[in-house]
Simulated assay, not measured.
Amino acid sequence: MRQAEQVTFGGSGLDRAAQLRDDAAGLADLWQGMDSRILLIWRGKPLCRIPGEDEGTLSVPAALAWVMSGHPLVSNLAADAVFLGRCESGLARFAVDISAWQPDNLDDTALGGFVDVSEQQHPDLPSDTGFAELRRIMAHLSREEAELAATARAVFGWHQSHGYCAKCGAKSDMAQAGWQRICPSCGAAHFPRTDPVVIMLITHGDAVLVGRSPGWPEGMYSLLAGFVEPGETLEAAVRRETDEETGIKVGAVSYLSSQPWPFPMSLMFGCAGEALTRDIDIDPNEIEDAIWVSRQDMMTVFEGVHPEIRKPRNGAIAHFLLQNWLADTLD
C-alpha cells in the first residue's frame, strides 16, 4: 500500500537514537543542552498549546507544548525521563510523567467518558497550555509530534502497569532512558510491551463489513478488530476474529498498513480480507451489531449525512483504511 505510512502516528522519520540509551553522560549533556525539549504527560495526556478565542474556529489543540530541562517541574526528574530521540531538526526530545499532580476541582467523571474533552491547566505552566486527551487531538498534530506523543504515552503506560518484576515479584527500576526495567532482586530485564491487533477491511463485492461494540455512541460503527493470539499468523487472526464476531468466513487476506495505537500499548495491523459469504451471525458476547455497508452508503457516511451511521474517527486506522478503500488507493 503506497500510502501505508501516512497513517496517524506513523512514518514521521523520528530518529530514536537507541544507541544513546546506555550513554548516561551523553544523555545528561542532551538533557541540559539548549537544544533539548521535554514533553510533560499527565495521566496519559500530553501537554498541548491551547488555542485562544482569537485564533479562529479551531478549538482542538494542534501542537504540543514543550518545556526546557531547567523548568521547576522537571529540573530534578532527569532520572525518571524517557528519551524519545531526535526530531528531524536534530533537537533532543524527552518526556516526563507528572501524573502525581492533582488538579484543583478535578472532575473524574469527565476523564472516564468515551471522548474526554476536558483540559487540565497546571498553575506553574503558561496559561495557554493544558493537558489534552491524545485521541481527541491526534489528527490535528504534525506527523512528528503525533509520533512523539504516542511514544511517550505508550512507554509511560507500560511503566505504570509493569512496575514489578514478572519473574520474582520485586519492584523493578527504570533503565536505558526509560526503555527497560531491571529487577534489582533477580536481575531480570523487561522491555516495553506491544500487543499485536488485527483490524480488518472485510469486503464482499462493493460492500464493507462494519460492527459496533456495546457502550459505543449511537450510530458509531467501525472495522472489526481483535488481538492476535500466541502461535497465530496475521492472516489466521483475521479469519478467526471475523468468524468469531460475525460468522463470516474469509478467504484471501492481505496486509495493508500498521498503526501504533498507544491506548494503552497496541500495534494495529490493517489487513484486507475477502468474505466468502454475506450471512451475518453475530456473537453478542463479542459485538453488539454488524452490517454490510455499500460503497455509496459509506461515501455518505464520510460526508456526515448518513441517517444512521456516524463518520469514523479521524486519525484512527479504521478511518484511514476506509478512506483509501473509497478512493480505490489500497494498492
Rank of each mutant, 00 (worst) to 15 (best):
L223E: 04
V210H: 00
V7Q: 08
P46K: 03
C168Q: 07
G113T: 13
S266E: 15
M299S: 12
W292Q: 12
P123E: 12
G85N: 00
Q160L: 12
R295I: 07
A225L: 09
L14E: 01
L141P: 06
D22M: 08
R93N: 09
Q176I: 02
M68C: 11
A62P: 02
G205T: 05
E286S: 10
T246P: 00
F227A: 12
Q160E: 15
A62D: 13
V96Q: 06
G304V: 08
D107P: 08
A252N: 09
T129L: 08
G231R: 00
A100Y: 13
M220P: 01
C186E: 05
S257L: 08
G11E: 06
I291Y: 05
A81L: 04
M299P: 08
K171D: 13
D289P: 10
T329E: 15
A150E: 05
E308R: 10
M138R: 13
G56C: 03
V197R: 04
A24C: 07
G211R: 04
S69F: 01
I291K: 13
H306V: 10
A25G: 01
D97Y: 03
K171W: 05
H319S: 11
V253G: 04
V253M: 02
S294E: 14
W179Q: 02
V117L: 14
R93W: 07
G90E: 04
S213H: 13
V74M: 02
H306W: 09
N314I: 15
L30S: 05
T300E: 13
I309V: 14
G178D: 02
D108P: 15
G13C: 03
V74F: 02
G130I: 04
D206W: 00
Q3R: 14
F320Q: 04
A150T: 03
L84F: 04
P126Y: 08
L134H: 07
A154V: 00
S127N: 13
P230Q: 11
Y164P: 03
F263P: 09
D23P: 00
S36N: 07
M138C: 15
F263M: 11
S258D: 09
L64A: 03
W101L: 12
A188Q: 10
F263G: 09
G44H: 03
I309R: 08
